[in-house]
Amino acid sequence: MSVQQSQVVTDRRIARTKQFISEAFVALLLKKDIEEIVIKDITETANVNRSTFYSYYRDKFDLLDHMVKDRLEQLNTLWDTERSQSAGYKPDFNTPDPFFVLLFSHMEENEIFYRVLLTKINPATAGADHASSLLGFIREAFYDRITALSMEQKQSVPLDLLLDYISFSTFHMARKWLEQRMIYSSRHMALQLTRLSILGAYDAMGVLQA
């Protein structure tokens, strides 16, 4: 076996071990609060020894930081690819916005992780508000779309309020969806958020027709 082949095997083994550790941690977080979990719980569930854990992570909070960072990097990579392909999207009542499709599909594929992140972890005991990283991604994605159209100075409401309204509503809809164990499909959610965005709250409520 060449040095290069040996390195590939080692890298795969490391990635697999980290995956075991991450999956064990998520499984534990479904059952316990983060402050109740000790490293021994994680290593026994993952079937690795403590020295292996500490060769990759300082503690359980560092592990959580890495897990959140990895998922957001995946999401950013997906959006970087999709952004150019969806640049020509025109709002359509029967065609879900590509951003909503990507976001909800990604969360559906990583359901357990995001359910833990958004509904099980208390920022006060986790050492950081990791959920805010996802909120920041959503806000930045909408900001990029506005600036790409050179519309940031042409909004009928202040840009910061518009971004808050869109990003917080999207974020909390996603959180509620996960809390309810995804009773709707990711595509259905993407389509409904698209329709709400097109209609606006008052039109969706029927107030404008009253």
Score class of each variant (00 low, 15 high):
Ala148Ile: 04
Lys154Cys: 08
Leu159Phe: 01
Ala174Arg: 02
Lys154Ser: 13
Leu149Gln: 14
Leu159His: 03
Ser169Met: 07
Lys176Cys: 01
Arg139Gly: 07
Phe137Ile: 05
Phe142Leu: 02
Met173Pro: 00
Ser156Gln: 13
Leu134Glu: 02
Ile146Gly: 04
Leu163Gly: 04
Ala141Trp: 03
Pro158Arg: 09
Asp164Asn: 13
Asp160Phe: 14
Tyr165Ile: 09
Tyr143Lys: 14
Tyr143Thr: 09
Ser156Asn: 11
Gln155Asp: 04
Ala148Trp: 02
Glu152Thr: 07
Arg145Pro: 02
Tyr143Leu: 15
Asp160Tyr: 13
Leu135Pro: 01
Leu162Trp: 08
Phe137His: 08
Glu152Leu: 04
Leu149Tyr: 07
Phe142Lys: 09
Leu149Ser: 11
Leu159Cys: 05
Tyr143Glu: 15
Leu161Phe: 15
Glu140Ala: 14
Thr170Tyr: 01
Arg145Ala: 10
Leu178Arg: 00
Met151Cys: 05
Ile166Thr: 10
Leu134Ala: 04
Met173Thr: 10
Tyr143Phe: 11
Trp177Cys: 00
Lys176Ala: 07
Arg145Lys: 13
Ala148Asp: 15
Leu178Met: 02
Phe142Ser: 07
Val157Cys: 09
Pro158Glu: 08
Ala148Phe: 06
Gln153Phe: 11
Met151Val: 00
Ala141Arg: 11
Ile166Asp: 07
Arg175Val: 06
Met173His: 09
Phe171Ser: 00
Ala141Ile: 03
Gln153Asn: 15
Arg175Tyr: 00
Trp177Gln: 00
Phe171Cys: 03
Leu149Ala: 13
Arg175Trp: 00
Ala141Thr: 12
Gln153Ala: 11
Lys154Tyr: 10
Leu178Tyr: 01
Gln153Ile: 01
Leu149Met: 10
Leu135Trp: 11
Val157Asn: 07
Thr147Ala: 11
Leu163Val: 03
His172Leu: 10
Tyr165Leu: 14
Leu135Glu: 07
Tyr143His: 12
Ser150Pro: 00
